[in-house]
Amino acid sequence: MRIIPESGIGPTNGLIDEHPCYSEGASHRYARLHLAVAPACNIQCRYCNRRFDCVNESRPGVVSALLTPEQALERVREARQRLPMLRVIGIAGPGDPLANRERVFSTCRLVRDRFPDLHLCLSTNGLNLVPDTVDEIVSCGIRHVTLTLNALDPRVGAKIYAWVRWKNFKIEGVEGAGMLLERQLIGLHALIARGVLVKVNTVLIPGINADQIGPINRLVSEAGAFSHNVVPMISAPEHGTEFGLAGMRGPTSDELQRAREACRGSARVMTHCRQCRADAAGLLGEDRHAELTVPEPRRGRGRLIAAIAGGAEVTVPVMA
């Protein structure tokens, strides 16, 4: 496994040494706050179930409440008081941020204007990383983007993604996986060309994409990605995912280690990821999201139906 020493990075201006996901050292000193302002998603991963209103689980896709951009700003104000070590504001769901462009970029601008010293970060599957989206990412002051890239072979991708939704069309199988891959690679290069620090996440799924890890690492390294994060699939029947209900397991620690050892490129291999909730707060491994205020639903409006692109709807508390 090739790990680039932090001393070899050069001037960072805090972009690396204050971001807990980009520096293991920073993960012990600096906090992050995830703002749950992005309910909709434009793809369906077979390992994912975006469960709302859940306080007892810690995994991607779960939140206690969905926020408006204005309430997200209030959450940042409160977190700033409670977490003096706060340095990073991230948007990682519970859907895909770029499937919720207006909400997400409005939130980023509010935070940027009020707290210019905080670093803005978002995570995406990459389907909507078209040129004008990259331009808006840069104009909002977002300097860190995490891109989830699980396969370079669309035939493998078709086993991972049930469908993708593009311009109101649901596209399944190899065609859908190929469309997603094409836009992921275009977006990866576009972000790096604009000076954005890119971390690539790959979910290791035993029996499906283990042989893709090394090639992904080499490709993203050659493109100039800062780091590559190979994470284990979290799978259990109670999560309600397609893979979980089918009894598919996550990787063993040995399988995960072998996958990471297959990474021979120049991108730093991240090994301290905690696969955070979409409303996480605090240091990695010491989540304090439950300590922050959750706004009460507006009287008379009950509950909001948040459409998830391409199919089912889920109910979430109205936070307006």
Rank of each mutant, 00 (worst) to 15 (best):
P237F: 01
G285R: 11
A158Y: 10
D96F: 06
I91H: 10
G244Y: 04
A92K: 05
R183T: 06
G173E: 03
A177H: 01
V55F: 14
A309W: 09
D96V: 01
L35V: 08
R298E: 15
I171V: 12
V63G: 09
R268I: 06
V318S: 12
A320P: 14
L245T: 06
C108Y: 02
G207R: 02
G14M: 00
G141S: 02
R218S: 13
G285P: 06
E6Q: 11
I213F: 00
L147P: 06
L35S: 07
L33W: 03
R112H: 09
G240M: 02
N125D: 12
V314C: 09
H228C: 04
A307W: 11
G302S: 01
S123T: 13
Q212M: 01
W163F: 14
P297H: 05
M85R: 15
M85G: 00
G157A: 01
L304Y: 12
A267S: 12
E313N: 15
G240N: 06
I9H: 09
A246G: 08
S106A: 15
A158N: 02
H228L: 15
L86H: 04
D17E: 15
C45R: 07
H34D: 11
R155S: 15
G300M: 04
G207H: 05
V138S: 00
A225Y: 10
R114W: 04
I305W: 13
V63M: 08
G126T: 03
G25I: 05
Y47H: 10
G14P: 08
E175I: 08
W163K: 11
R59K: 12
V314R: 15
I3A: 08
N42I: 07
V76D: 03
R303E: 13
V231R: 02
W163C: 02
R59C: 03
G95M: 05
I142C: 10
R50M: 14
V230L: 01
G178L: 00
N125H: 05
N13A: 14
V318R: 14
R80N: 02
P11I: 12
P94Y: 00
P11R: 14
E222G: 13
H289K: 13
P39F: 00
F115D: 03
S253D: 15
M233G: 04
L15V: 01
I160Q: 04
R46E: 10
Y47P: 07
R274M: 14
L110Q: 04
H144I: 09
A278K: 00
I308M: 14
T315A: 13
V203A: 05
I137A: 10
H228Q: 00
C276V: 11
L188D: 03
N42P: 08
A262Q: 13
L185W: 07
V37K: 01
D113E: 15
T148I: 09
A280E: 02
G195H: 10
L181E: 04
R87W: 08
L110A: 07
S221E: 08
D96L: 00
Y47V: 11
T148N: 01
R143K: 14
G224W: 02
L73M: 06
